[in-house]
């Protein structure tokens, strides 16, 4: 059980790391949204799933409710994160930012 929790938590941390480094490395605003929208979502999902599993450790009604609440957070993040990404992209398009293409200087 502990091993499964650790695997889920560390894979979540790995994806969160990749998301942070991707936000630093990618060349422009639109491509920075790829790690921010996808890697952060999956990292949060995996890490929270591991923690929900851990809070079931000593089984009781309170622990079950806590773990169900963490599941609620997971569902919320799963729905809300693409929508937030889409809102930021939409703001960029309305503001008229041109996407970076190959060969340009990074911004």
């Amino acid at each position: 059980m502990d091993i499964l929790v650790c695997i889920l938590l560390f894979s979540g941390l790995f994806f969160l790391t990749a998301g942070s480094i991707g936000i630093l490395r990618f060349p422009d605003f639109y491509s920075r949204l790829h790690p921010a929208g996808k890697l952060d979502t999956l990292g949060t999902l995996l890490a929270l799933m591991g923690l929900a599993l851990f809070s079931l450790h000593h089984f009781s009604l309170g622990a079950l409710l806590t773990s169900l609440k963490i599941m609620l957070i997971i569902i919320f993040v799963f729905v809300a994160s693409p929508t937030a990404t889409h809102a930021i992209v939409d703001a960029g398009v309305r503001a008229g930012l041109a996407p970076w293409t190959k060969g340009e200087k990074r911004r």
Binding site: G12, L16, T44, A47
Partner: peptide, 14 residues
């Protein structure tokens, strides 16, 4: 900047 703030928020959730 907003992307950065959003990323900080999702880490804070965990």
């Amino acid at each position: 900047r907003m992307i950065g703030v959003n990323a900080i928020g999702s880490k804070t959730t965990v």
